[in-house]
């Protein structure tokens, strides 16, 4: 990256005029766009090759959507995708509920002993490397002999989704003006009414953000599921991994592209729905 040199230009000689505005460094724009290309090129290549007609990924023979048809018709892929959705939806629902309750207790429950420790415990899954979580969970399930099939996977996913759901909810709560809740109580609302009519509606964007994060994180997970899931409980990423292991075919690209576009659509939709709301309220 030669453009890096540009941000530390040689010192201007005393007396020489500074012609460029400060902060405007030439080459930065090029670098930024190269960076974008770097981010999106692999995704683009993957999607492009999924339309390759031939069965060898890297030799382009012609355009075809056959691999998508084949992937969508594949019973194993459909089962894996279904498993992924079941796990992600369950883990999102449970983890977001738990995280919302915990965030409320920590942000509105006053000061108490062990608050910092509990906060640390809840964010523990963020700190432990995924592979460590994966094998620890494997060891744990095997040592207590827990065999719930997909249930095991849901438990594991719920655990590591909790801090992801928790963070945006807590951030939203901390940013919320507590005088709104006081105003509600001042106007004869009981604690429950205050929660239902004021706290929860205002917290909702945070809850949605938390649920969205949890869902994406669960859909994205591969290592933990790989270690924890039994033979019939494969999720889509784990299934894709086993396909890659067997040899890269345009079908893998097709399945991967579907998964990619699904996440991109979700993140983009989420971004635009949350962006526009405050804007509408201003004028």
């Amino acid at each position: 990256m030669t453009a890096q040199d540009d941000i530390v230009p040689a010192a201007a000689l005393p007396g020489t005029k500074v012609r460029r505005a400060f902060g405007e460094v030439p080459g930065l724009k090029t670098l930024a766009f190269c960076f974008l290309a770097f981010l999106y090129l692999p995704i683009g290549v993957l999607v492009a090759y999924s339309f390759n007609e031939g069965n060898i990924v890297m030799v382009w023979t012609g355009f075809s959507t056959d691999w998508y048809a084949q992937a969508l018709a594949d019973a194993d892929i459909r089962k894996a995708a279904m498993n992924s959705l079941i796990v992600a939806v369950s883990a999102t629902a449970i983890s977001t509920t738990c995280a919302t309750l915990a965030a409320l207790a920590l942000a509105r429950g006053g000061a108490f002993r062990g608050k910092v420790a509990l906060l640390g415990l809840i964010s523990l899954p963020l700190m432990v490397p995924e592979i460590v979580t994966a094998v620890a969970t494997l060891v744990f399930f095997s040592s207590i002999g827990l065999r719930l099939g997909l249930g095991n996977v849901i438990i594991a996913h719920t655990t590591f989704c909790i801090p992801f759901a928790f963070m945006p909810i807590r951030a939203r709560l901390e940013g919320m003006d507590t005088t709104l809740e006081q105003a509600s109580r001042d106007l004869y609302a009981s604690d429950w009414e205050t929660f239902r009519l004021v706290t929860l509606p205002l917290l909702m964007p945070g809850v949605l953000a938390g649920a969205m994060l949890a869902f994406v994180i669960s859909m994205d997970d591969f290592i933990i599921t790989l270690m924890v899931a039994g033979a019939g409980d494969t999720t889509l990423p784990v299934y894709i991994y086993s396909m890659i292991r067997q040899g890269i075919t345009p079908e893998v690209n097709a399945v991967s592209s579907i998964l990619l576009l699904f996440s991109i659509a979700m993140v983009t939709a989420y971004w635009f729905t949350t962006r526009q709301k405050p804007g509408r309220n201003i004028h």
């Binding site: 003006d177 005088t179 709104l180 006081q182 105003a183 509600s184 004021v198 509606p201 205002l202 309220n281």
Partner: peptide, 9 residues
């Protein structure tokens, strides 16, 4: 309230 505390929703 000093800063009104009107319910924004």
């Amino acid at each position: 309230f000093q800063h009104y505390a009107l319910f924004p929703h």
